[in-house]
């Protein structure tokens, strides 16, 4: 069946799919750009006798096409960079917190600690809504601290009795104490490396 786009059909040339011509086509494509004279170029490309005309035809075609290429103005990259400077892509926002945000969070934390310390020291805040909020805060802190103390006391008692059972148990506990943070550090490093590879 003849296809209109088939080179052999349109040109009636059965040699077009010749592997030799295909190879020549690729050699010319890889080497066409050169200032050599045609004869020197053919010699350098080691074109077999009988294929010289084909090679030169291909070279002329390549030159003809290349002559249609244009060069962009020198300002092109500057224009792109100017547009890029206005961009705030998602990947640039990630992991880049503004120093102001950090400062604000730190200020809130310091303020909360200061208020708590004042209240814990028994500072007088008078009466009214502010006093109610202060009482609530004081009660919460006291309750939380009490709960935390009690639970850790319990945990501490159990741990102490367990550690005193034998020197091996103590050594195992020491090993765990070192291994656990090391495991977390390794895990974090691996996750970071995987994220970097994905990018």
């Amino acid at each position: 069946m003849k296809r209109p786009d088939d080179t052999r059909a349109t040109r009636g040339d059965e040699t077009l799919d010749d592997p030799g011509l295909l190879a020549l086509d690729q050699r010319v494509d890889a080497a066409w750009e050169s200032d050599d004279e045609d004869g020197v170029w053919l010699e350098r490309l080691a074109v077999e006798e009988g294929l010289a005309e084909e090679a030169l035809g291909l070279r002329r075609l390549q030159c003809g096409i290349a002559s249609l290429r244009v060069s962009v103005p020198a300002s092109f990259a500057d224009q792109v960079m100017a547009r890029v400077a206005d961009e705030r892509p998602a990947w640039r926002r990630h992991g880049q917190s503004s120093p102001l945000a950090w400062l604000a969070a730190a200020a809130v934390l310091v303020g909360a600690l200061a208020v708590t310390a004042m209240l814990a020291a028994g500072a007088d805040v008078g009466s009214g809504p502010l006093a109610t909020v202060a009482d609530l805060l004081t009660a919460s802190v006291a309750a939380g601290a009490g709960l935390l103390g009690a639970s850790w006391r319990g945990v501490g008692t159990i741990a102490a009795s367990w550690l005193q059972t034998s020197p091996e148990t103590f050594a195992l506990a020491a090993l765990l104490l070192v291994a656990a943070p090391a495991w977390f550090v390794l895990r974090a490093a691996r996750a970071r490396s995987a994220a970097s590879r994905r990018r």
């Binding site: 750009e33 200032d35 050599d36 003809g64 096409i65 290349a66 290429r69 244009v70």
Partner: peptide, 28 residues
């Protein structure tokens, strides 16, 4: 009508012939 820069070897390096350029564009 553009002036196409050319880095081709001679004689084809001077290929600024509009007729030829137009023919190549049409052929492509």
């Amino acid at each position: 009508e553009w002036e196409f820069p050319s880095d081709c070897p001679t004689p084809y390096g001077e290929l600024r012939n509009l007729e030829r350029g137009g023919a190549i564009r049409r052929a492509v």
